[in-house]
Amino acid sequence: MNAWLRQHGRAIASAAAKISAQRTTNAVSALVIGIALALPAGGYALLSNLTGLAQRTSLEPQLSLYMLPETKSSESEALGKRLRADPRLAAVRFVPRDEALAAMRGTEALAEVFAALERNPLPDAFVLRALDSAPGALDVLAGEYRVLPGVAQVQIDSDWARRLEAVLRIARTGIFMLGALLGIALVAVTFNTIRLQVLTQRQEIEVTKLLGATDGFIRRPFFYLGAAQGLAGGVAALGIVWLSIESLNQGVRALAATYGSAFQLTHLAGADGVAVAALAAFLGWLGAFLSVSIHLREI
């Protein structure tokens, strides 16, 4: 155990010496890896934000039911009674046309438009919340209500959220593909840096081998080197993503404020950050492993 620890300690010391001997090269490689990884990591961070947004909305199984404009209020009330009796609905809120108009006039952006209108163009409406949030159940309800007398239109409010989710699913696939490609690029970058290292140290490797060094002894420092480079790249990527989200947030906050929202982009979760760094370290190790396995055979 002690000897094992000592061997790894020496390998780490040797890897550290190799890094400090070629500081600039290693820093540049880490930066290249960082930029490459920042793309999928940043995409993932943005996606998590949008996914959170879509999920919050789609949890509400809400339907909007609009009456025909010429419907009398008594007819609307009769429908309201019927809806309240429906056991599949958790809540029914009646929005009379006058109230809707008042609400629109209260909205800063639309006040002028509605002030110019001579008569109320808005119909009576019901905002319904179903018990069952499954999309299929909502479709059934909407289909039933659409044919009731006096009903002009029934709209499933969470539709847009579902569409967004579908779009996000595609985006997620895209980001995973991008991540996979850039992961391969990371392996390739480490593969090449380690190859150069092996070539520069060819003589040293040759001599240590002749003096009785095992392959493991020769390879270990390169593995640590590759893993360290991947890790440095991963940390650089996290830094780039953090900075990008910070600077985007200034704009996002200003935009959200105009909608009266305090929305802003959240940073990558701690666990996600650790996963990115660990994955980068693993890919660096993999690149080193492949490179050393191939190039040591030539010596």
């Binding site: 020496r10 240590t208 003096l211 095992t214």
Partner: peptide, 27 residues
Amino acid sequence: GLVFQDQKLLYDRSVFDNVMLPLAFSD
């Protein structure tokens, strides 16, 4: 103990470190 015709010393390190080389992978 091998003494090579071309000696195979490492010229980028000190005399002491050259002798330390075989000890690096010993226990």
